[in-house]
Design a protein around this nucleic acid. Sequence first.
RNA 1: GGCGGCAUAGCCAAGUGGUAAGGCAUCGGUCUGCAAAACCGACAUUCUCCGGUUCAAAUCCGGAUGCCGCCUCCA
Length: 456
Amino acid sequence: MSLLIYNSLSGEKEEFVPVHPGRVGMYVCGPTVYGPCHIGHARSVVVFDVIARYLRIKGYDVKYVRNFTDVDDKIINRAAETGLSAAEVAEKYIAEFYRDMDALFVQRATVEPRATEHISDIIRVIQLLVDKGVAYESGGDVFFSVDRFPEYGKLSGRRLEEMDAGARIEVDKRKKNPFDFVLWKAEKPGEPSWDSPWGRGRPGWHIECSAMSTHYLGETFDIHGGGRDLLFPHHENEIAQSEAAFGRQFVRYWVHNGFVRIDKEKMSKSLNNFKTVKEILDSYDPEAVRLFLLSKHYRSPVDFSQASMDQSNDSGDGSDLWDRFCQAMDDDFNTARGIAVLFEAAREINRALDSGTNEDRCKAMEARETMVRIGSVLGLFNVSAREHLERQKDAVARETHIDSAKIDSMVAQRAAARKARDFATADRIRDQLAGLGVVLEDLPDGTTIWKFTGKG
RNA sequence: GGCGGCAUAGCCAAGUGGUAAGGCAUCGGUCUGCAAAACCGACAUUCUCCGGUUCAAAUCCGGAUGCCGCCUCCA
């Protein structure tokens, strides 16, 4: 069974063939750490987490590199605003990133490098470009010359002539072409800086990804990912730099995830309409958030709303199911179709358990194994159903200030009434509980569990 | 101005030539003291609209309308 991946470079689904058989090198652009993570970051991170997990379960030896951009204008500005150093700002938001992504059960990448740890690699690539005459220095800044890279625009599908340069920002007069971009920025007072052949300064944004990805994965590697918004100019520039410097194809498969939208509009820090991961996790179960993020194909936009999240919050022969899951995932990582298989597995388990014959019990075991396996790819079922229920109770109780001990005692009173066959009293208590948004479930063994419905 | 994407039931969402997955909601049934959960069944003759290609189209082509994105930092 071959794996198809949509390649932004060709605009088509292509059969996945790694550079080295059995091994996959994958680089995904991580966050610039100047503020809290929003649900858009989470989508990208979760999507590529699932892709890495799936490639591994298919048997590939995956080297997954995800960077942190820890030196940048925005970090420096943030430092100036808060009185912290740039390094302290970066450190703070890297810690928040881990807190949020760990909560979402995101696995760590193989390598998680930071730009500031690779200054010498960055300088080496810039030097190569200067030596080849593809980059030029001007007043301590170094620019990449897009005119020296004829294939510029091949990823984003635009030609330099078609683009409306300077429509929204003023063009730096020192640039030979308005689309030339900065590789190295000359030092300004109070900013972090490093020595370089062009004087003290710091790297531009795009160059760090070329330097770090090739450092860990080689000059040609398999998969490079990130949000759609990075396609231009960031990834276009990465291709230009890397291919100009090393003289060979940079990346085989470019993978871009779609946006999270709010009210049909892109969510972004600049539009200031973002929801942070932290605030969402205050109200919703982490696995529900994952399920929500994976409920649509990764390339399509997904609309965040209270209603759509509420919906995800309510959810809950074996090898055949696994094959069908793989078919979905082999088709450009179609998690939405994969989730359908998951629901079918759940139904199969329940059906087999209901019928209760030994043969069916075996089937249920098989289906359960498949379900756990699918869950391990999607990063679901990290906590038991029982623990899940307890967490949900705690969260709702905290939010609504309902005392769960009191509910427990009401449930016990009802149990006593039922035992005495005083169903009128039992039902009255149940109605009272319903008024508090509590629903009861009497189990066959005579015990009763309860949960909040969310509808008071 | 240039480039690109999307439009599928009340809602969410798969489906790139062969006759509409899955979930939520709703309505019946089994089970239950009654419920809940679970299971069984019902739920788009039709895929924004108009043309075209084809034996056959939600799927391909042309056009219209609507929504969104990129061309500036952004996952």
